[in-house]
Amino acid sequence: MRLPPVIALLATCTLSLAACDSAPPSPPPPPPPAGTDAGTEPGDTQAPRTSVASSRPAEGSQGLYPVELYYDGTASRPGVYLRKALTVTFTGPMEPSLAQVTLSNRTDTSIEPRSLTGQWSSDHRTLTVTLPAPEEGGPPLEASSTYALDLTRLKDAAGNPLDGAPVLGDGKLDFTTGARESLLEHACTHALVNTAEALNAAPTPFAFPPTTDEGHKRYRLTLPGGEGSYQGYSEFISAPDADETVTLFLSREVPLTVRNDTEGVDVPVELLATEPACAGITHRARFGATAGDMIYQLHYGPTDHATFEFILERQTK
C-alpha cells in the first residue's frame, strides 16, 4: 500500500534521527606533543609573566645610605673608593643576555640618566647592579635624592616582558637616599686600610687592662672566657684639657659599659647600629669623657664572640 506523501516524509525523518543517535561520538582532539606547554611560547602575553619578588633597597624605601667605601688593591692607584650595589630578585629565571637598566635622579633632573649593566646570578633570578662613582666625579648616589631604576628592558626566559605588578607597578624601582656621615666614612677608611693592633682584654679591671685610647686606630680585642660567653676590660685616659665625645666603631654588636674610675661613677653609653657604609663596621658605641687625664674602665660583654675589632675616634666637645 502506498503511503500518503506526508506520512512517508515523517517516516524518512524518523529513520534519519535513529541513524544519527546510533552514530559513534567524535574522538577527542589529540594531546599536545610531549615537551610543549600551551601559552608559554616567547612573546605570549596571555601566560603568567615573571615579576619582581624582592629588591634591595625595597620599592619606595627611604634613607638608603648613598655610598659604600671599599678598598681596591688592583687599581692603578690602590686605595679606598666609592660604589653602591642594588639587587633585584625575580619570581622566575630571566633572559641572561638582557642586563641593561637605566638609573634616573628624579630630584635633580639636570643629571643625565645612567645606563648600567648588571650581573646575573647563576640561576638568572637575581640581578646585581653595581654603581661606581661617576667618571666626572661625585658619589655613586647623591644624598637625600629620589631615584628610579628602570627595569623595563628586561625579559624573562620565555621572552616575555617583565610584569611590574604587584611590586613595581611601572617597572621602575623607586627609592630615596639619606644623608651621609663624615665621621662614619672617616672610620671606614681606617677599618679598610689600617693594620689592627691585637690586644688581650683583662678579665677584671684590676688585672692591668690594655690601654685603648688612641684616636683613628684599629684595635683587635680578644676577650677572656669560654663556652660561648666572653667579657673583659680595657682602659681609656681622657684628654688633659678638653671634654670629648669618644666613639668606638665596632665590627659587631658588643655590649659596652663605661666607668669613670677616677671619680667612681658610671658613664652613659649609647650603642647603635650604623649605616652599611663599609665592611668591618656594623655598630657604634659612644660616651662622653671628662678632661683631666681621668681613667675610664671599658667593660665589653658578655658576648658570644671572643674577638672583635673597633676604630676609636675622639672628638673635642
Rank of each mutant, 00 (worst) to 15 (best):
S97V: 11
L98I: 10
L103A: 13
N105P: 01
N105A: 10
N105F: 11
R106A: 03
R106V: 01
T107P: 06
D108T: 01
T109N: 11
P113V: 08
P113D: 14
R114D: 02
T117Q: 13
G118I: 07
Q119W: 15
S121W: 02
S121A: 03
S122L: 02
S122M: 04
D123Y: 04
D123L: 01
T126A: 03
T126N: 03
L127Y: 02
T128E: 12
T128K: 12
V129Y: 01
V129G: 00
T130Q: 05
T130S: 11
L131F: 04
L131G: 05
L131R: 02
L131T: 06
A133E: 15
E135P: 10
E135Y: 13
E136F: 10
G137W: 04
G137T: 08
G137E: 10
G137C: 09
P140A: 04
P140D: 01
P140G: 04
P140M: 00
L141N: 01
L141W: 01
E142R: 04
E142W: 09
S145H: 14
S145R: 05
S145N: 07
T146K: 04
T146C: 02
T146W: 05
Y147M: 06
Y147E: 04
A148G: 12
L149Y: 07
L149M: 00
L151S: 03
L151H: 07
T152C: 08
T152A: 07
R153P: 04
L154M: 04
L154K: 03
L154Y: 06
K155A: 13
K155Q: 14
A157M: 12
A157T: 11
A157G: 11
A158C: 08
N160V: 06
P161G: 08
L162T: 09
L162H: 10
L162R: 02
D163H: 09
D163G: 09
G164S: 01
A165E: 14
A165H: 09
A165C: 05
P166K: 00
G169I: 00
G169E: 01
G171A: 04
K172R: 15
K172M: 10
L173I: 00
L173A: 07
D174S: 13
D174L: 12
T176Q: 02
G178T: 07
G178C: 08
R180C: 14
R180F: 11
E181C: 09
S182I: 14
L184A: 07
C188E: 01
T189H: 12
H190G: 13
H190E: 15
A191P: 06
A191Y: 11
A191W: 11
A191G: 09
L192Y: 02
V193Y: 03
V193L: 08
T195Q: 13
E197S: 14
E197T: 15
A198G: 05
L199W: 10
